[in-house]
Amino acid sequence: MDGFLRRAAIVLLPIAMVMMLAAIWMVFAYVPDERVMGPVQRIFYFHVPAAIITFFSVFVLLAGSIGYLWTRHTAWDQLSRAATEIGLLFCTIVLITGPIWAKPAWGTWWTWEARLTTTLVLWLLLAACMMVRAYADNRDLGARLASVLGIIAALDVPIIYKAVDWWRGQHPVVFKAGEKTPLEPRMLRTFLFCMATFFVFYGLLLAIRVAIVRLEDRCQALVEASSGDRA
């Protein structure tokens, strides 16, 4: 593992674990119940951070995609590969925790509401990015196709954010640009702490995943070089 990524992982791992335990304590013991929804509202403290991390990961993917298409430097593609997989993980968490909240709140696991549907589209686009890399004839073609899909996935993010306004969806809106948050102070503190925890986890996972991609590329280069020597 590279020196910087190794150090980042070693520093972030214990911080992430301690923050995870503290976040669990805050969600279960510190924060009060929401008056209307009761305990099920506490899903909000990790559903929303997971959604924000998904968006952040897609913006990292966007930077990697544009960087690769512009420069053809593999470091950008390595960043994209890592961000795609981790973005897909967090998007999966969003798509599982959302319906778990929706069942007691709306009485149904899933509805083809605008924000839910556009989030599912994002999940499919991220999965498609991974699939084109896996099945492309050569690495450069896979990277280029995945970069284009990565840019399209990034275009979906503002659509997800504005979907509730544009199509008057059912999805609740807690934070709106330019408006004061309606959250009680303990709820806001818990939310911000969970947000920080998810960011630390994201940094940790990204550092390890980028390191794996680099190691895999070095293996691939050695295999290609040795097969070239034989030929």
Partner: peptide
């Protein structure tokens, strides 16, 4: 009932993240 939904959601999040971390290691 609300707590059982909360527990399921929490399990999904933390088991998912920790399992993925272990898989990466």
């Amino acid at each position: 009932k609300g707590y059982s939904f909360l527990m399921w959601a929490y399990n999904v999040v933390w088991i998912g993240l920790v399992a993925y971390l272990a898989f990466l290691v």
